[in-house]
Amino acid sequence: MTSWLARARDALAFEWTKLQSVRSNRWTLAAAVIVTLGVTVAIAESLASTPANRPAPFDTLTASFLGYAEYTVLPVTVLGVLVFTSEYASGLIRTTFTAVPRRGAVLAAKAVVTGAAALVVGEVLAVTCFLLTQAIVAGRHGGLSLSHPGVPGAIAAVGLALAACAAVGVAAGAIVRHTAGAIAAAITVVYLLALLCMFLPGPWNTRLGRFTMPFAAYQVASLHQRAGLLPPAISVVVLVAWPAIALLAAAAVLRRRDA
């Protein structure tokens, strides 16, 4: 038992040291944060300038996270992909597997470390985006407070969604190995499946779409439930299920493939 714990700690320390020691990772995150804040402010301003008698296109809770949904999720997903593909590209992956021969442990450690970093960034950014947006729209529409019913849960889930996207990226990187292909695969899961579903006719767009990550994230980040989508609790399960399934597939592939 202790040896199991010690090995888990080793693997996590290994991956954390590698993640934080590459300068481009920090720059990517910093750029994502800055761009997200800028876009969030722009969206909030445009929302604040819509006439009060016309219904706003989004509720103010959802509007807080529109910038985040693209300008944070995309770079963080790519960061997750690079955690594996950069090692495959340089050949470092063989050194990694000789240091930690259990490939499942390597995958788990990478997913946990990247996911945890994404979770911290995601939660901090979610709170910041929420407070910024509410401060800007407060004059016209009446901003929400952090203690408004549904808001704490939404902020927690939005941060979690970022960790889920990072984990999907890690799994895609492990399965596909090449950066470009892995990014395409991860973006397919994180964005494009939902886009495909939206093109479906009739009730089928939401009927299938509600099982995709963007629909689920939309549902947990809204004040009012949309009909036809899954309830927020189930949506959180959907958000977690995608990376879980992807990581299981990655573990199976890693274990039986030559490095």
Binding site: D10, A13, F14, S21, R23, G91, A99, V100
Partner: peptide
């Protein structure tokens, strides 16, 4: 087979930590 963007120190430190 090393990451070009990592310093020698961190490359070795990561490996060292992987084995306690």
């Amino acid at each position: 087979a090393v990451h070009r963007g990592r310093t020698a120190w961190f490359h070795l430190l990561a490996l060292a930590r992987s084995n306690g």
